[in-house]
Design a protein around this nucleic acid. Sequence first.
RNA 1: GGGGGUGUAGCUCAGUUGGUUAGAGCGAUCGCCUGUCACGCGAUAGGUCGAGGGUUCGAGUCCCUUCACUCCCGCCA
Length: 595
Amino acid sequence: MSNRYRTHNCNELRKKHVDTNVVLSGWINKKRDHGNLLFIDLRDNYGITQCIIEKENSNFRELEKTQLETVIRIEGKVVNRSKETVNNEISTGEIEVGIIKFDVLGACRELPLPVFSDQEYAEDIRLKYRFLDLRRKKIHENIILRSKVISYIRSEMNNLGFLEFQTPILTSSSPEGARDFLVPSRLNPGKFYALPQAPQQFKQLIMVSGFDKYFQIAPCFRDEDARADRSPGEFYQLDLEMSFVEQEDVFNVVEELLINTFKQFSNKKILFNKFPRIKYKESMLKYGSDKPDLRNPLIINDITEIFLRDDVKFEIFKKLVKSGSKVRCIVTKKTKDRPRSFFDNIDKWAKEQGASGLAYFTFENEKKLSGKGPVGKFFSEESLREIMNITGAEVGDSIFLACSKQKELEKITSIARDKIAKDLEIIDNSVFAFCWVVDYPMFELNDLTKKIEFSHNPFSMPQGDINQINFENPLDILAYQYDIVCNGVELSSGAIRNHIPELMYKLFSIAGYTKKDVNEKFSGMINALSYGAPPHGGIAPGIDRIVMLLAEEKNIREVTMFPMNQNAQDLMMNAPSDVSEKQLKELNINLKNKK
RNA sequence: GGGGGUGUAGCUCAGUUGGUUAGAGCGAUCGCCUGUCACGCGAUAGGUCGAGGGUUCGAGUCCCUUCACUCCCGCCA
C-alpha cells in the first residue's frame, strides 16, 4: 500500500531499496543531535528506521526542535550505511533514510512518561496514559501476541468443527457464584439485568438447541476484588461446550488445542504431551493445592502416624496430633551440607506466613542413623527408618515438618513447597507443565455454617451409575468436574454437565434448595433440560492467563490493553463516573448518599 | 473488610544519628558538536518531600491520623 503518508512502513527498507525515494510516517522514537547532523529513529507498529538530516537542509532547525513522540511524515532517499555504522540490532540497520523534507502530522506535548525506555513506571501513570504506555516495546508486543493467540485459537476451533456464537451480555442475576455486576432496566422499573459471570447456562442451552459443538471468546464479568493474575471486573474465556461427550473427549480436544497453541507461540518445552491426571484428593495431599506446579519436584507426605509412636519424643507435635492435627513433610534431596541459615530462613519465612514455623532435620548415618538439627534428637532410629520408608528420603536428605489442622496444613505446605523449591533453584523455568486435576467432590462442608454446599459447579454430573448414587454420604460423591493447570496457574475449570432434571433437583436438595428454589433460580436451564437434553460437557480456559504464560508476565495488566486498576477504576476513561439526575430518574434510581 | 510494601523535580531514584540553601540520571529550555544508534559536552528552569496533625531549638528523616498506588488474605460456584 502506498499513499500520501507512506510508501513503506518502518520495518520494510533493506539494502535493495538503496537510491529509491520513499515516504515514511511514524513517531519520533529517539533523536541524536550532533549539531550539524541529526539522527531520527522513526518508529511505527512494524519497526524502526534511522533517518538522517544535515544542517544544509532548510528543515534542519525545525526538525531539531521537534519533540519526541511527535508524529511526522518524511520524504527522503534510502542510502547505504557504511560498514562501521551498520546497526545489527534492528532489521533496517543496513540502510538509513536521507531526509529531503518532513511534515508534522501530530504534535506532541511534553511527555508524562517516556516511551523509549525499559524502566518500570508507576501503575497509575501508565494506566492514565495507557495510549503512551502501549507504544512501549514490551507491552506493544504482548498485545500483538494476544491478538495472534486469539486468532489462532479461533481458527483451530473452527477446524475442529466448533461453531462460534455470541451470547447475551445483558442477562439475569444468578444466585450462585461471584458477585454480579447489575444494570438497571429503564423499561422495567426496579428490575436489573446482570452481566454474565460466564455464558454457563447459555452454552448448555446451545447444546439443548442441538448445535453439538460451540465456542466463543467470551467476555466474563465478576464483581470481585483483583489480584495480580485477576482483573477486576472483566476477563475473557475460551468458552466451549460439546454434546454426546465423556470427560476424556473434552480432554482430548483441549490437550490438542493447548499443545498446538503453546508450541506455536513459545519456544518453551511442553513437559507432558499427555497431560497427567491428578485426583483432587491426591493433589491436596501431595501438593497442598488443587493447582500444583509440576515443574517443582518436591512432594508433600503425610507422616501423622509417626507421632503416635512411643519412641518419638516430639511432644508438641504429639500433643497436637492427639487433638486432631496432622503432620506433613517435605523432603529435600542431598541438602545435608546446606548452611544452617538455609534452614532457619525457611523456618523464619514460615513464621512470617502465619504458621508456627517449620521444624527440620537432616538424615545422617555416622555410626548409626540419626536426625541432625534442632528436632532430630526426638526421633528414634526405628522411627527415622519408617519416615524414610514413607517419604523415600535417604541419608543426606533433609526434611521439613509442619503440624496443624488439615486446611491450614495444606496451605502452609503448599506455599512452603514453592518457597523451598525457589530457594533450592530446582524449578525449571524453561518448560510448561500442564496437568488435569480430576475427581472433585460434588459437595463440601462449610466450616462456619456446618452446612453442605456445592464445592464447585452445581450443574456438574456426579460420577458413577446415576441410579446407584449413595446420597446418604453426599461428601463422598465425586463429580465429573475438572481443572486444567499449567505451571501452578489455574487455566480453567470445566465439567460434564448434569442434564437430568430429577437428578439435579436431588443434588440441589442436598445443598438445601427446594424444587421450587431451583425452578425459580434456574428456570431457563431446568425447563430446557426437561425437553430432551443431550449429555454434554465443556470447559472454559482463561485467555488472559494463557497469554500471560506465553508472554512470561506475572501481571494480567501486562497482557490487557485497557485494564482497570485494583479499585476497578479506569483512570484513562474515568470510569466509573457520576451520572446525571435525568439518567437516574429515567432508571427509577434514588441515590442514598448524595454528595 | 484485614495485613504488608511504596509515595522526594515531568519520569526513575538517592538523601547518613533529626542539623546549613533537599541531590543525581533521563526529560524540558538555551548553547556547542558531521556518524550516532542509551551520542557527547556546557548552562538554565523545575520541589506543598502524598495530605493533615504532633514531638523538637530544629523534621524529607521520629510519632499519630489520613489519602493514593501496589502485593497478599478474605472473596473469585
